[in-house]
């Protein structure tokens, strides 16, 4: 049960606001950044901006990476209004920036919004997700001899995937949607090196770009075969790749996105899927 909120290096006024807001079912744990060990059962992370915290952006970024693609909100409290743009915090991986000067009711509403449980899976998602899980593991086992385990799935249309390299492919034809895969750089480098049978230090950005495109292409290609004759059968487009340390990938809130988190050794990656079945309930016969 996710019932822990971590407040990191927060002052008494912020802790008081949080205590006023939290009920009995959620535990507030006040920690110093250097004492953080595990975020797995964490439901929200609170940080506080301050003049004495020059490393706050680095901390946000480290925490976002440490979330391992889980949709844990990172909230930054500001103690002074209009001190500057909130954009650096958001691009570092924060979910929301709140001013401590805001009315308590507004703060409670914002925090409550981030504690709303994820939506339940749609019927079609329960029908097509297993195939993507199976084929993601199979593709990486086949091309990179990498043992991959499926860790969890969540359904949150608003969450932005934070990563270093993402491959995206449009699913078209009968069923339509999008398939994406996002890695942190070291795992992408490991996988492409294994695919090519070479050392990781020989894998440059161009090869990672190219290899991640090929991986998402193969996952899409093998999965569409599973859906022949079903309303989920799709065709794949040419893949696109986004490279950038800490880039954030969002989708339209009208698209029901399922985020699948996988683990390879001690590293994680995420697959994002949205697939709208063919309204005619058949394949397009291409």
């Amino acid at each position: 049960m996710l019932n822990r909120i971590i407040a990191i290096d927060c002052s008494p006024p912020v802790i008081n606001v949080l205590n006023d807001f939290l009920g009995d079912t959620i535990t507030l744990e006040s920690l110093s950044f250097k004492n953080i060990r595990e975020l797995k059962d964490c439901r929200m992370i609170i940080l506080q901006e301050g003049d004495e915290k020059p490393d706050l952006l680095k901390q946000i970024r480290k925490l976002r990476y440490a979330c391992h693609f889980r949709n844990i909100p990172i909230i930054v409290f500001r103690t002074m209004e209009n001190k500057g743009s909130m954009e650096p915090f958001i691009t570092a991986g924060a979910t929301e920036v709140i001013s401590l000067q805001d009315p308590p009711a507004a703060i409670r509403q914002i925090l409550s919004g981030h504690l709303i449980p994820n939506r339940q899976p749609l019927k079609e998602e329960t029908e097509y997700i297993d195939s993507f899980v199976k084929n993601t593991c199979a593709v990486l086992k086949t091309v990179a001899s990498l043992d991959v385990s499926f860790e969890e799935v969540y359904f949150d249309n608003d969450f932005k995937i934070f990563g270093d390299v993402s491959g995206l492919i449009a699913l078209t034809g009968g069923a339509e949607g999008i398939l994406g895969i996002t890695f942190y750089w070291p795992l992408a480098q490991t996988i492409i090196a294994r695919m090519m049978g070479t050392d990781e230090d020989k894998i440059n950005a161009e090869l990672i770009h190219d290899g991640v495109a090929e991986i998402v292409n193969m996952i899409g290609g093998t999965t569409k075969k599973d859906f022949v004759g079903q309303p989920y059968h799709f065709e794949i487009s040419l893949p696109s790749v986004i490279v950038g340390s800490g880039h954030q990938l969002g989708h339209s809130d009208k698209m029901p996105i399922a985020v699948l988190v996988f683990r390879a050794d001690s590293q994680y990656f995420a697959v994002q899927i949205c697939l709208k079945p063919d309204p005619n309930g058949k394949t397009n016969g291409k």
């Binding site: 090519m196 161009e206 495109a213």
Partner: peptide
């Protein structure tokens, strides 16, 4: 193949 990685895998 439009993938340099794939071309190199086959070439190897």
């Amino acid at each position: 193949d439009d993938s340099k990685v794939m071309r190199n895998i086959i070439q190897n």
